[in-house]
């Protein structure tokens, strides 16, 4: 039926859905908010610089005000003092918005398995695309943006109603090792005890 109508209309008029048109526009003009806290930020700058040139993919307009952005790129480790700031900036960004977690530290805490470093930002805020690497190459970040564009184009809606369905936390629900430490301390294991191993 659609083909029949298209044939009659010729090359002058294209028929599409409003959702697809909006998603096409959004996917091809992502405005990133660079939340760069560590060495991933250097790769992020390199991605936007002339050699790799993120503007070839329509997302070069880095804005340092969250009100003007729709893509948060968390590049680097996030410590417990920074996480409330990150969440606040995320909440300040207007809908529709997406989030890329760039690098091992932002995804899982990386090698920084310590008291201060958040073990993956996805435990406390939604993440759309994860980029592995320490730090990832600019090509990997470009790939993640292309993947995000595909994601937006395939499932986006004009009034962003697909986000309303995601009411549950999307982070990992793995076993809490800190809880294990607290249980062991409650049961009287001390540091000098050979059985006490806070790491495993």
């Amino acid at each position: 039926m659609a083909t029949q109508i298209n044939k009659q209309l010729g090359d002058n008029i294209f028929l599409t859905t409003l959702d697809a048109a909006a998603s096409w526009g959004r996917a091809n003009s992502l405005w990133p908010m660079p939340f760069a806290t560590a060495c991933c930020g250097i790769e992020l700058m390199s991605t936007a610089a002339s050699k790799h040139d993120l503007s070839r993919f329509g997302s070069e307009v880095m804005r340092f005000s969250p009100r003007q952005c729709d893509l948060m790129i968390v590049a680097g480790r996030v410590v417990m003092k920074m996480l409330p700031v990150l969440q606040r900036i995320w909440l300040q960004m207007p809908e529709p918005k997406w989030c890329i977690s760039m690098g091992a530290c932002a995804c899982t805490g990386g090698v920084f398995d310590t008291y201060a470093v958040v073990q993956g930002i996805d435990r406390f805020m939604p993440v759309d695309v994860y980029v592995p690497g320490c730090p990832p190459r600019p090509e990997q970040l470009i790939r993640s943006i292309l993947d995000l564009q595909d994601k937006i184009k395939s499932g986006g809606t004009v009034n962003a109603r697909e986000f309303k369905l995601r009411i549950l936390p999307e982070g990992p629900s793995r076993f809490d090792e800190d809880e294990l430490i607290r249980i062991r301390e409650r049961n009287g294991f001390k540091l000098d005890d050979q059985k006490y191993d806070p790491v495993h």
Partner: peptide, 13 residues
């Protein structure tokens, strides 16, 4: 690894 300070945050869905 601390005493859970790094996990003590509200979750933004």
């Amino acid at each position: 690894k601390g005493r859970g300070e790094r996990h003590n945050f509200p979750i933004v869905t």
